[in-house]
């Protein structure tokens, strides 16, 4: 019986969507920015703001669309479902305006990308161990 209960709990937790506070927004350690609003982060990932205050070019990196963290990030930061964002990027690409950010399939790939790009910004699961080459920015409303 206990095993059945544990199995149910594990299944429940796996199916649970990633919720607020379950991701950390990270930037390159050399970036002077320490906090950002949700709106700022959204503009950076939509490439509506393309440079940091220092003049460094912004390099956003997304997680792959199938990742639960991507759905949560899109929902909380962009405040839109993923399908709306997919159409937004298709329109940007077909009009030649821009292309969507690179996508990585794991937290470690995102960390490596941000660490290697001075203007990098990404998001990883809360609790992920971070190297000195990246840092967390605090989010405000």
């Amino acid at each position: 019986m206990r095993r059945v209960c544990i199995a149910w709990m594990v299944t429940f937790l796996i199916c649970l969507p990633v919720s607020a506070g379950d991701f950390l927004v990270i930037v390159n350690a050399g970036n002077g920015v320490t906090s950002l609003s949700h709106r700022d982060v959204s503009k950076l990932f939509l490439k509506k703001q393309t440079t940091w205050p220092s003049g460094v070019v912004v390099s956003p990196v997304d997680q792959v669309e199938s990742a639960a963290i991507r759905v949560a990030f899109t929902d909380q930061i962009h405040k839109r479902p993923l399908t709306v964002l997919q159409k937004y990027w298709l329109k940007q690409a077909f009009s030649g305006t821009s292309v969507k950010p690179d996508e990585k399939s794991s937290d470690s790939d995102v960390i490596n990308y941000v660490a290697e790009n001075k203007g990098g910004i990404g998001y990883v699961s809360a609790g992920t161990e971070l190297p000195d080459t990246v840092k967390v920015v605090t989010l405000s409303d």
């Binding site: 393309t50 440079t51 003049g55 460094v56 070019v57 390099s59 690409a93 292309v99 690179d102 290697e116 790009n117």
Partner: peptide, 18 residues
């Protein structure tokens, strides 16, 4: 001016084909 003199990484310069 935005990003004066800023160079892009090789990744950012990549050719997108779609």
């Amino acid at each position: 001016d935005g990003g004066v003199g800023e160079t892009l990484s090789e990744l950012q310069k990549k050719l997108h084909i779609y």
